[in-house]
C-alpha cells in the first residue's frame, strides 16, 4: 500500500506539492489527473524515490521510499521523458535493468517483446515514439514490480499505440495483482483504465474518488411541470446543479437513483427523463460543487 502523509516538495520558492495526503491500496490502478504544473510528475517522482520530500512522508508498506533499495526494487518507474542509453538496444537496456533490479525476468521480457513485435536487437533510439513507450513499459514490467508508476505514459500516442500500452499495463496488473499509478493531464485517457482517480491542482489533491462511485454518484434528470416552479420545489433532494429553460429543468442530482426517481414521480411531472452522465461531466459538476471551475483545472 502506497501512503503519502503531508507530502511536500518545493523547488526553490515554488511549492510543487503541498501537504498531500493519500492512500493507494494494493491492486489498484490509480489515476492522477491535473493540468500542467499541478504536481503530478513531482508526486510520482516522490513515489519513485527520485526526490527527497521536503516534509511529510511517502511510504510503501510503511517503509520510506527515498534511498531505500529494498523498496525501490519493487517499483518500476516510466518517466514522461524516456531515457535509454545511447545506441542501446532493448537487450542492452534489459541487461542494465537486470543489474539493478534483482527480480528482472528475461522470460517475461522476451515474451512481451515478441508479443508486441519489437526487435530487441535494434537501437531503441531508432524506434518511433510509441515503440519507445512500449519498450520502456516492457522493460519496467519485466522487473516484476509490485508498484508501477507511469508518468504521462499515454500522452501523445496515437489511439492504437495508446490501447496497446494500456492493455500491457492492465493485463500485468490483473495477472500479478500489482498496483499502478498513472498520471495524465487528460481525464479521457484514464477513465477506462483506472479504479480510482485523484485530481491535482496547484500541488494539492482537491478531489479523490472511486471510478465506480463516481459513475453512480451523480445522475442527470430532465423534468417539466405544468405549473411554474423553482429549485426549492425539490426540497429533500441533493441537487448539485439546477438549470431551467422555459418549463423544462435539468437537474444534476447526487443520491440513490431509484429512490430519487420515485420521489420525483410523486410530484407528477409532465416530463421525467433520467440521463446518464459521462465521467467528464461528473467531474465538471463535482468540481463545480467544490467551487472550482473545471476549465481552470484541466486542459
Amino acid at each position: 500500500m502506497i501512503k503519502a502523509v503531508n507530502l511536500t516538495k518545493k523547488f526553490g520558492n515554488f511549492t510543487a506539492l503541498s501537504a498531500i495526503n493519500c492512500t493507494i491500496p494494493e491492486g489498484c490502478i490509480y489515476g492522477l489527473v491535473g493540468s500542467n504544473g499541478a504536481g503530478k510528475s513531482t508526486f510520482i517522482r516522490l513515489l519513485a524515490g527520485i526526490y527527497r520530500p521536503d516534509s511529510g512522508t511517502a511510504t510503501i508498506d510503511d517503509k520510506s521510499i527515498y534511498e531505500n533499495p529494498e523498496v525501490k526494487k519493487r517499483i518500476a518507474y516510466v518517466s514522461d521523458e524516456l531515457y535509454f542509453l545511447p545506441q542501446a538496444s532493448m537487450n542492452r537496456m534489459a541487461k542494465l535493468y537486470s543489474r539493478t533490479f534483482e527480480n528482472f525476468n528475461f522470460e517475461r521480457f522476451h515474451y512481451l517483446t515478441n508479443a508486441l513485435k519489437l526487435n530487441p536487437n535494434v537501437n531503441v533510439n531508432s524506434f518511433s515514439k510509441g515503440m519507445k513507450r512500449q519498450a520502456a513499459t516492457i522493460l519496467a514490467l519485466s522487473t516484476m514490480p509490485d508498484y508501477i508508476l507511469f508518468d504521462e505514459t499515454f500522452d501523445g500516442l496515437d489511439p492504437v499505440m495508446r490501447n496497446t500500452v494500456k492493455n500491457i499495463i492492465y493485463s500485468d496488473v490483473c495477472e500479478r495483482k500489482s498496483t499502478a499509478v498513472i498520471s495524465s493531464h487528460s481525464l479521457r485517457e484514464l477513465v477506462d483504465t483506472c479504479d480510482q482517480l485523484a485530481l491535482l491542482h496547484k500541488g494539492g489533491i482537491i478531489f479523490e474518488s472511486d471510478i465506480e462511485n463516481l459513475k453512480t454518484s451523480l445522475f442527470k434528470v430532465q423534468i417539466a411541470f405544468n405549473e411554474d416552479y423553482e429549485k426549492d420545489k425539490f426540497k429533500g433532494i441533493e441537487i448539485i446543479n439546477f438549470q431551467k429553460k422555459g418549463s423544462v429543468a435539468n437537474l444534476i442530482i447526487r443520491g440513490e437513483r431509484e429512490a430519487t426517481v420515485e420521489k420525483l414521480k410523486l410530484m407528477k411531472p409532465v416530463l421525467l427523463d433520467v440521463l446518464p452522465l459521462t465521467l467528464e461531466e461528473v467531474f465538471i459538476y463535482e468540481m463545480d460543487a467544490l467551487g472550482y471551475a473545471f476549465k481552470d483545472l484541466m486542459i
Binding site: I50, E67, K72, S79, Y83, T100
Partner: peptide
C-alpha cells in the same frame, strides 16, 4: 553525463540502489 539531463538523472535515481552505491 546522466547528471546533466533530467530524464537520465531521474532514470538513474529511480534505480533500486543507494546513491552512494
Amino acid at each position: 553525463s546522466f547528471l546533466n539531463k533530467r530524464n537520465s538523472s531521474d532514470f538513474y535515481h529511480s534505480l533500486s540502489c543507494n546513491r552512494i552505491t
